[in-house]
Simulated scan of single mutants.
Amino acid sequence: MAKEADPRAAVLDAESPHPVIPQAGRLGRAIDKGGIVFAVGIVAAMLILIQEVVLRYVFNAPTIWAHETTVFLCAIAFVYGGLYCAARDSHIRVVLIYDVVRGRPKRVLNAAISFVCLIASAFFAWASWLMVERAIFRPDGSIRFESSGSAWDPSYPAYLKLFLFATLVLMAIQFMILTVNYFRSSRDRDRISN
């Protein structure tokens, strides 16, 4: 019996040393490339915090924007991290059964797991839309972005909720692509073996 290749041992993009599973498609490759933006955001948050420490403790001149900005940058990076892990098939799964299964049952299991994740992501996207509605729209229908209520008062809470909604929609689409591609690979390999 031939040993099945691990889908995570995937295609290595010519420009990137990071593996993106082939089943993730073009969207997965775009998500993988977009990860650098959020990695830079984490570094920017670190630099902002260093600046704030120097300004506060050396010059006794703290800013009013540093804390909220670093929290926002880190929050969007963590939210994007879920989408990034889905595209690279590095999300957490219970492997008690998964690691024992081989061949067609494993490909079917991959499709089923992706389908369940698609349903969950769609429900979470719907729930996040309810948060977006409260964060952006007034009861009369006019638009006013929710703000933090601090002295600086940025609209970061509304932006974060919008970003969460967009990311969950993309995650649902990514899991739909994974479901279809895993199902196709399972069906195509069955045809080849017959």
Rank of each mutant, 00 (worst) to 15 (best):
G35M: 05
G28R: 05
P154N: 04
Y84A: 06
G103W: 03
G103A: 02
G41I: 07
I143K: 04
R107D: 11
S121P: 01
L96W: 05
I50V: 15
Y80P: 00
V95E: 05
L12M: 13
Y98Q: 00
S90M: 15
A151I: 08
F137Q: 06
A24W: 05
W129D: 02
F78M: 15
G25I: 07
D32Q: 14
R189A: 15
A39D: 14
L47Q: 09
A127V: 04
N110Y: 04
D13W: 15
A14V: 10
V116M: 07
R134E: 15
D6N: 11
V53M: 10
I113E: 08
R29S: 12
A172P: 02
L96I: 04
S150T: 11
D13E: 14
G103F: 10
Y159W: 14
M131R: 01
F163G: 09
F78N: 15
S114M: 01
V54A: 11
P17N: 11
L73K: 05
R104K: 12
A87P: 00
S121C: 04
A2L: 14
L130W: 10
V100Y: 08
A66F: 01
V169E: 09
W129F: 13
V108T: 10
P105L: 10
L49C: 12
W65E: 02
K106R: 14
I50F: 07
G35V: 05
W152Q: 02
G41L: 15
L27W: 07
A172W: 00
R134V: 13
L47H: 06
I36N: 03
D13L: 15
V43I: 12
E15M: 13
I177W: 08
L55N: 12
A151G: 01
G25K: 10
S150R: 01
S186I: 09
I113F: 02
D188C: 03
A87V: 09
L55C: 04
M171E: 09
R191L: 15
L109P: 01
I50L: 15
C74L: 14
N181Q: 07
S90R: 13
Q174C: 06
G28E: 02
A122F: 11
D188I: 09
S186Q: 06
N110T: 10
L27R: 07
G28A: 07
E68Y: 10
V40E: 12
